[in-house]
Each structure stands twice: as structure tokens, then as C-alpha cells.
Design a protein around this nucleic acid. Structure first.
Lengths: 334, 334
DNA sequence: CTGAAAGCGCTTACAG
DNA sequence: CTGAAAGCGCTTACAG
């Protein structure tokens, strides 16, 4: 691999000059500029970014930690966010170093951050699995900004970019109520994590607005996997006379729909259904599924944008919470 | 951020000694070892991997280029491969730098490789969009090994890790024939790329084995997107009396199923269907879909393994092609 | 208009 | 058993 020294030699100039023409960082005469460019071409020179980063003390790299589980369904959401982040950062010459915390274990999350630290990232975007992240004080030590996405943990100062899960849930349940439903089943992921809590609150709020009493037996809290969604739907239908079902999580939606289709329950005649997250497959169920769409790509873009601002302006302490609106996508299931 | 110098000072030893205790690279007495460990703890020292890589001339980083399109369906396959790669490399202390060529444009692929070069990757795993990759001679210049996955381009020496698309396709069509079908529609992605070619060959081979004449009008070559799958199914059904359909690509499968469910065509009574790739959503269509499963995770693991071997043993020139078997997953659609 | 040299944080041959 | 010093490939203050 050619290095800057070889380029300098071939061009008959100093390495300082080569560096300056690469970075446009001081005036260089046209003629020497040309010589340098020619030399770079001929040697197919690529600057070594390790050396550059070491010297500059910045890597133009943002670490991204998301929990992408083995289940392919759950991948969509964070993958789409990741694409949004990548696209926005690329425009500014930043790279993303993505790490997948597939175990959902806190220790691995910490380990991953340490690894990022040793790689000298300029910032961290994280969907933390922890609801309490004061441990970041030790690992991050404010060396770089942190932007939290999707979930809202406490205990560390950073920005948040989140979907309006409350509003989405509210709208879904309002819609069902307006269609005449009174006994509405609700399946959600584990409480304690902010997204689930907010969605449950939206459900309760919609009921309250319409004077419908909250019935805890209509709520199933499930683990975020297919089987759990399947079982929850099963139990809900066995134990209660519900006419509608709102599933506030994508993997659980798939499991619940799996059960309904197996039992050949007619949707929406026997049971109206609204799911969560607008994925391609929701178009090909029978009937196509009405869902609450989360702005996942937009969350990624926004997170990147917020991060970039923080990097430009490191010592501002006014952290923000950005809420991106969800959307009801009407299809045939309600 | 604490550096090695500060650790050395605090421990009252030279930086050479600190380095050696970190890397276990020469004998250090227990007592000084302890002093060093204590100092590292107290300073929460993390070695700077930029500096280390610069010095060592290796980064323990493998570049990965895959085409993950905006469509979420197509993501599964390469995401799963990526997870396989990541898992296998992690065990050996390697990181993966993933880059998503979402435009499917060759120029972007080249650009991405250049970027990887400047980051000094130790190896490249790539699902190239090009069928002819002699341009890699210029960009890679044999500085590091290249492993090709999924597709099989020509023009550059490297290993290949591929699914047995021919065998999978053969088995699917054989299965349909054995169930009595004679007029079997076939939808595939653009020919020219190796995977599509192989799958078409499998289709033809199965027909030939059973003495069924190949009818080109039963074959639709489509772009790899939902709409194209939808349209292909539509045309195929309008123009021909087919009793079975084999869709040799996951996104196209979704589009085709979308059309069939919209038209309320009864599966398998009116039309037997076999799709491609075993995703979660294939379980919840009506009826659940019979598919050819590709060993995507295993492709990733294998690619990583092959890469690691190449890195250990750089100047061996016996490149291999690894074919991983597909599997027929029987469900209700045929 | 351009160069010589220090230094980013490591590893490792050389020396004792 | 351990240290002093060179060097990985860059950038940038200093100097002219």
C-alpha cells in the first residue's frame, strides 16, 4: 500500500504539502497540486485513516448499539433505523460502527461500549436494553455524546429520539372504539421498558376518554417472541368475549395473527385486529392488516442529525426529547 | 482518556512493560504485573486500538458488503448472513465493518471498497452486485483475502460460499411434479446473476427428469420487488393454465402471494405454491407457505471461517467453492 | 509558496 | 527481569 511518503517523493514535494492538498488546508500552487494529484493517481494512494484518526483524535465514526434478535421479524425495526442513521451520517462523512446486542444482556452491552471506546468512536447511538443507564457514567465518561433511540432509560444525560407510542396506541384503540368495540384485547411486550408502558397508557387513555372501564383481564403482557404472541391471543380468546384486539408490538402481532389464522377466525367479522409496525408482510395476511406505523427510518435520520449537532457543539447541556409521530395505516383487518 | 503512558507512570514502570502485561508478550514478575493491573483499573484504561492497529499493520476488522435494499423483506437474508459472520468472527476477536450497498450500483460498491481500504481492513466478504469483478484487481490489489457470498461472479481469485440454489430449485419442482403437476409456473429474479441462473436450471432439470417439455411461457423473469412479483403472478395466471407455481426469490414470493390472496385463489386446491426462503411470515399466510430454505446463517458462519483460514495462511492459492445445501420446508401450500 | 520536525498511542527489536 | 527508543502514517504549529 502506498503511503504519503511515497507520494511526496514521487511528486518531489514534502509530505506536508501532500497532506495539505489532500485536505485543502492551506494554499498550494496549481502546478505542485497537479504533481501531487498525478502521484496519488499513479500509486493509487488511499490515505490511512487510522493514522489520521490517531493524529486528529477523532474518527468520524459513530457507534450504534441495537438489539437485533435472532427472530427476523424484530430485525426490521432496528435495521430500518440503522439505515436512516447511516444515510444521514454518510452525507457528513461519518461512518457507523454497528453492533448487535443479540443476547439482550446488560453485560454484553457494556462490553460492547468498551470495545467502541477502544475504537475511539466520536459518539454513541443506543437502544439500550437497560431502563437505568447510570453505568454509562463509568463507561462513557462524557468523552462523547450519547443519543438514545426507541426506548427511554433514565440515569444519563443525553438526547432521546423516540416514536410517539402513546399517541399511536391511543389512536389505534380510539379507532376500534369508534367502530363500536367495547371489549378490546391488548397484547404488549414486557412492562418496565418505556415503549410498552407508553403503549399501555395509550390504551387506557382511549378507554377512559370513552368511559369504558379498564379491565385488566383483557391485557396480556408477553415476551417479545412469536410463541408468546400466539399464546397470548389464544388465552385472550379463550377467557374473554373480546370483539377486537390491539397488539402493540410487531413480533407479538405476528404470533397473534398466526394463532388467528390457524383457528380460522374471520377478521374483522369475528375479531377486529390492529397490529404494530408497518412491514411488508402485513399486506399479505388474510385480510391485510391495519397497523400503527412507526417512523423508524425517520427516527434513524433524526438521531443522526441530533448526534451531528452535539458533535459540532459539545458543551451544550440542554438535552432534548424528540417524539416522532406514528401513523394509522388502514387496511382490511378492522 | 487515560493512555499507556499514564498507566506506566502510575505503576512506576516503563510503557514497554505495560504493553507486555496487556499482551502477555514477555515475562513480567507477579509484583509488577499487579502494580500495572491496579493502575489500569484505577485509570479505567482502554488500549487505543487505532494506535495498536497502526503499529501492527492489522486491524482485526473484516469488511462486509451486502446489498440490503429498502424493502424489508430482502433484508432478512443478508442480515442473517451478517449475524452468522459476526458471531463466528467475534470468537476470534475480529470485528465486522458492515456496509450496505443499497443502490445496487457498481460505483458505490467500488467507493465502499476504497473506504474500507483506507480503514485498513484485513479481509473482505462481499455479495457483489457485479457478475464480473476484475475491477477488484485494482481496488483490492491482493492486499487482503476476499470471500464471495451468495452470488458467484467471475474475474477475481477468492473463495465462494454459496447456497445450492440448483438443488433447492430442483427439489421444489420435483416435489410439485410428484404431486401430479405438469404445468408449473416459475418466477425468478433477473437472469445473469448466478443465483437466478442456477434456480432456473434446477427448474429445467426437474422437468427434464420427468419428461416434461420446457415451456418458456411459464417462466417469468422479474425485478426483485414486491410489485414485480405481484405482476408476474398475475400475468402467469392470466395467460396460462398452471396448476402450480414456484417462486425462486423471497421478495417475489411475497408479491406473488399478495396477488393470490387478493384474488382469493385457494391454495393449494386451485394453485399449489412453493416459495423461496424460510421467513417467519411464511408461517402466517393462508395457508402457511411451503418454501425452500436457504442456510443463510450457516453461509455467514462458513464465510467467516474461510476468511479466518485465509488470513492465517495468506499465500495459499487453492481457492474453494463451498455449496451449502438448501432444505424443503413443507407447510400447507402444496 | 513550501519544508522539517514533533507527536498522536501504541509495539517490539535491541540492550543490559 | 525491565527500559529507552524507533517507527507505524498521518497532521499541524513553527519557520522561512
Amino acid at each position: 500500500m502506498a503511503d504519503i511518503k511515497q507520494v511526496a517523493e514521487r511528486a518531489g514535494v514534502s509530505i506536508a504539502t501532500v497532506s495539505h492538498v489532500i485536505n485543502h488546508t492551506r494554499f498550494v500552487s496549481e502546478s505542485t497540486k497537479n504533481k501531487v494529484h498525478r502521484a496519488m493517481e499513479e500509486l493509487d494512494y488511499q490515505p490511512n485513516s487510522l493514522a489520521r484518526s490517531l493524529r486528529n483524535q477523532k474518527t468520524k465514526t459513530i457507534g450504534l448499539i441495537v438489539p437485533i434478535l435472532p427472530s427476523d421479524t424484530s430485525n426490521f425495526f432496528f435495521m430500518t433505523i440503522a439505515q436512516g442513521i447511516q444515510k444521514a451520517l454518510k452525507r457528513h462523512g461519518y461512518q457507523v460502527l454497528m453492533s448487535n446486542n443479540s443476547t439482550e444482556e446488560l453485560e454484553e452491552e457494556k462490553e460492547q461500549i468498551r470495545l467502541f471506546n477502544s475504537k475511539q468512536i466520536d459518539g454513541l447511538i443506543i437502544a439500550s436494553i437497560a431502563d437505568e443507564v447510570s453505568y454509562l457514567k463509568d463507561t462513557v465518561r462524557s468523552h462523547y455524546p450519547v443519543v438514545f433511540i426507541d426506548r427511554k432509560p433514565i440515569g444519563y444525560n443525553g438526547d432521546f429520539v423516540l416514536a410517539d407510542g402513546f399517541g399511536g396506541s391511543l389512536q389505534a384503540v380510539q379507532t376500534l372504539i369508534e367502530r363500536g368495540h367495547r371489549r378490546i384485547g391488548f397484547i404488549t411486550g414486557g412492562l418496565g421498558i418505556s415503549t410498552s408502558n407508553e403503549r399501555l397508557n395509550g390504551y387506557r387513555q382511549a378507554l377512559a376518554e370513552h368511559g369504558i372501564a379498564f379491565d385488566p383481564s383483557l391485557v396480556k403482557v408477553a415476551h417479545s417472541n412469536y410463541e408468546s404472541g400466539y399464546e397470548s391471543a389464544k388465552e385472550l380468546l379463550a377467557q374473554n368475549e373480546i370483539t377486537a384486539l390491539f397488539v402493540a408490538n410487531n413480533v407479538l402481532t405476528m404470533g397473534a395473527v398466526g394463532y388467528l389464522q390457524e383457528r380460522q377466525i374471520r377478521i374483522p367479522e369475528e375479531l377486529a385486529v390492529i397490529g404494530f409496525d408497518d412491514y411488508d408482510w402485513t399486506k399479505i395476511t388474510t385480510p391485510p392488516l391495519t397497523v400503527i406505523r412507526q417512523p423508524s427510518f425517520e427516527i434513524g435520520e433524526k438521531a443522526a442529525e441530533v448526534m451531528l449537532k452535539r458533535i459540532e457543539n459539545p458543551d451544550q447541556a440542554d438535552f432534548h426529547e424528540y417524539r416522532l409521530p406514528t401513523m394509522l395505516v388502514m387496511r382490511g383487518s378492522c
